[in-house]
Design a protein around this nucleic acid. Sequence first.
DNA 1: GGGGAGAGATGCCGC
DNA 2: GCGGCATTTCTCCCC
Lengths: 243, 243
Amino acid sequence: MEVDLPAFNSALSSGKSVILSCNCSVYYSGRAESFLAGGDRIIIIKSDSTLLIHQPHGSTPVNYMKEGSSHTLLKDASKLILSSSNLQQKEYLRINISKIHSLQVLDLADSQKIQLTGSEKDMADMIYNNPALIGSDFKPLSREEHTRYGFIDVFGYDKSNTLVVVECKRYTADLKAVDQLQRYVKKIRQLKGLQKVRGIIAAPKISPNALQLLHDHGFEFRSVSPPKYLEKFDRQQQKLDGF
Amino acid sequence: MEVDLPAFNSALSSGKSVILSCNCSVYYSGRAESFLAGGDRIIIIKSDSTLLIHQPHGSTPVNYMKEGSSHTLLKDASKLILSSSNLQQKEYLRINISKIHSLQVLDLADSQKIQLTGSEKDMADMIYNNPALIGSDFKPLSREEHTRYGFIDVFGYDKSNTLVVVECKRYTADLKAVDQLQRYVKKIRQLKGLQKVRGIIAAPKISPNALQLLHDHGFEFRSVSPPKYLEKFDRQQQKLDGF
DNA sequence: GGGGAGAGATGCCGC
DNA sequence: GCGGCATTTCTCCCC
């Protein structure tokens, strides 16, 4: 397949998107360094200059360049080279192309933002609005309380006026989650000059080692799952999408 | 653009890769839920059944399905719908396509694995081989020491036979890095019945709050950067790629 | 398969 | 810009 180099490069600089399938090898140098020997890949260059190289398997790009890079396709002794650089970030990528399978230049328009529910923040909101999920006597004070040592998902107190720090996880709570809770509780104790501050992890489940560590700290676990708004979304979808 | 549905679906089931550019809206339900209103996107279905939906900006796919999903393109009352599901993981995706811009079916072959240097493990190796980076009296005992509560990057002792735990970070060390170090040191003290075990973070730099927390724990910081093997890679590249 | 941790993580928000 | 942290994180490795 022949490529019109000037047309390709002018498409890149005019905000078009490019999809290229080819056999290539890839060399990268920047934050780290990598080499990928020859094989068939899909290369996408987006209108914001993001470049992605995908192998025919897996979810993540094998190599990439972030927004703000510049790309040039050039011929060097009959070999096709796609060269990318980001001088500010000192990132460099070179793709040696041995055969082009397909090439599209597209003008894509998309101003939409994804709407997502079921995040950890939604979990914190749910607990704030339904404090009984933590305990019948739990009274929430704040969400996303920002401190210099991180921010606390839900902060409140119980019937004996003991302060309670709640850390939410949408997945299985692990050692890191307990670390995080421990850091917040320790800081609150220090700030308020209190000996007793309760720490609670709210998550669907917790790993055995994390539970051990949790108990070592004298903290508690509550099984809570992130909220789903399927019905709300189905209604929204019908409205927006005409289903 | 007209699409041959049976041909498309048989391509999907025969290990081909598909690249589709279209105007579409996307609905997802699974671990979370999302809706994305209409716009131009690039959809890739890989031969391992991974599906990616990319907007014309950003590095990460706006929606996706992982390996092991099944995809079907179907026509419902003159509307084109690409439906994906993963019954085991209870993940579902529906793409409502209003216009197809381009479509490729490709047979891609790639058995290569990327070779990468400059990772945290390379840093740990470097420190193990050049212990003076930590201290003139540091004697390393092990790398990647696996324990039930996590694994220690570099483990050793100093001239007074005090055990030393080193945690490497290839980027700016943050609060989480200090948490992690603190968990390891605490566990080693517990296991060995020791009062004094030193904790050291080796990283290019450390955030002010993390440094404060580090000092609160009585730990230390060493400025160390991840190694680069540009020369080694250039040699390798010349050999493998014929540059 | 679960647990633990890194990633060239990316992206978001707050200061 | 940095800092702190979630992510439908993903990926790898070890048990």
